[in-house]
Amino acid sequence: MSIWDWDYVWEAMPYLYQGAIVTVQATFLGFAIALVLGLVFALVRQSQNRIISGVMAEIVEFIRSTPLLLQIFFVYFVGPQFGIVIPAWTAGIGVLGIHYAAYCSECYRAGIENVDGGQWEACTALNLSMARAWRVIILPQAIPPIVPSLGNYFIGMFKDTPILAAIAILEMLQRAKNFGAENYRYIEAITMAGALYLLFSLVASVIVQMISLWLNRRYHLQ
């Protein structure tokens, strides 16, 4: 028996492909939630109302200091005991999104706080509405500089998707493992999964860099 058998590679390919689609979908959907919800968290956090902003800070801290896996178990296994039944896919993507939203919100916060205070003063002096000031003046300056760190969380979330296997979602790594178990041979499938993760991460980081460059150029920032 050779160490590396190409027959297994070809055999595992369609199987892993199915898993790769699930992994990529989960990453994109989950990260879309994280981006939007993270921004909402960050904006609520900026509220003038100390109580609202304080509660938001606590929620973010709570999410960040408990394990992702526990949060997924909580929603998927504990929920039904209280009559809250959420399908695995929805629960998995939702929790991934919320978990990473907490991290993204801290990125947004850093970006927002880095915008020069004089920009807010100019908005007031020009009588812009709060909504307009956020949307047209503050966020376009706050977000481009934090794209690289948001991108890190994008890749981080991608690498966390195998956790979905815990609630019976057949993502790429789980499929590789199953393939190995069925054939009493793991090396090809697991190696291939590893290579695919690496490939996706590299592609993703190139895309993030391109978005970052484009945004900075679009908004004439340094």
């Binding site: 004089g118 920009q119 100019a122 020009l126 812009l128 509405s129 307009r132 376009p140 908004y219 920032l221």
Partner: peptide
Amino acid sequence: FNLFPHMTALQNCIEAPVSV
């Protein structure tokens, strides 16, 4: 100055007149 750095001179001068 507190100009909006991501806007041209003209855009700086029309943002508030249009939106406010």
